[in-house]
């Protein structure tokens, strides 16, 4: 079984995004970029499937600028076998990403595609579900457990009320949530080895897919700032302040 894992290069989760003064977007110049944290969880899951003998090959794919190659290298160092970079300097919307991934699926014929549930830059939470719809595949989103057996993927999902488990016919789409696993750090020897693993360089034009954006950003602004309040001396003061505010 081949597993495809789409990984996105995003602002590092430790960095607080700053809005550009001209309100055209978020300032990403000289900002630390990393693999989307949910995608690290996806890569980890795929690599574990390979280590368990369930998966035969793990292919990682990224749509993004030249530097997204580093993101792919990180995934290769974690244990993925090879990468595909679909190079573009444009912003590609989730629907277009899903269409490109559909084309990649047609070439690679994976039985499982594991995506992150959400990219922490656009916070869209769409791409996996869209890809599933475009392929007419079943989906198990927000996964905290994935078990593959007898041509089915049993996926336990983190839902608002607790947990739900669904059984999906393969091929299937899974999107990862935080509790699925704890991604490994790549060891130095594996980082060295990853340098020799192949990355296929592609252009959007290679796929014959319409990626024209549907959305136009009118403006990007700062959220209202919340002023820090006061420090209170002790519990009694806290209680009297909250009472005065009618909060308790």
């Amino acid at each position: 079984m081949k597993v495809l894992v789409p990984v996105k290069r995003v602002i590092d989760y430790n960095v607080k995004a700053r809005v550009k003064p001209d309100q055209s977007g978020v300032d990403l110049a000289n900002v630390k970029m990393s693999m989307n944290p949910f995608d690290e969880i996806s890569v980890e899951e795929a690599v574990r499937l390979k280590e368990a003998g369930t998966a035969t090959e793990v292919v990682v794919v990224s749509i993004g600028p030249q530097q997204a190659q580093e993101t792919l290298r990180t995934a290769l160092a974690m244990g993925a076998d090879r990468g595909i970079l679909i190079k573009t300097d444009e912003k590609v919307e989730p629907l277009a990403v899903a269409k490109l991934l559909k084309a990649v699926v047609a070439e690679e014929s994976p039985e499982l595609v594991i995506l992150g549930k959400q990219a922490i830059d656009d916070d869209s939470n769409q791409t996996g579900q869209m890809l599933a719809a475009l392929l007419d595949w079943p989906q198990g989103t927000f996964a905290s457990k994935v078990e593959i057996a007898d041509g089915k993927a049993n996926v336990t999902r983190e839902v608002d009320g607790g947990l739900q488990t669904v059984a999906l016919d393969m091929p299937a789409i899974v999107t990862t949530d935080l509790r699925l696993n704890e991604p490994r750090y790549a060891s130095l020897p594996n980082i060295m080895k990853a340098k020799k693993k192949p990355i296929d360089m592609k252009e959007i034009g290679d796929y014959g897919v319409d990626v024209a954006p549907r959305l136009t950003t009118v403006k990007v602004t700062e959220p209202p700032v919340r002023e820090a309040g006061e420090k209170v001396e002790d519990v009694a003061t806290l209680v009297s302040k909250l009472k005065a505010k009618g909060a308790i």
């Binding site: 809005v19 922490i120 656009d122 950003t217 009118v218 403006k219 602004t221």
Partner: peptide
């Protein structure tokens, strides 16, 4: 977007 650190009108 960006964990609420930016607000996008789209």
């Amino acid at each position: 977007i960006y964990a609420g650190n930016a607000i996008e009108t789209v």
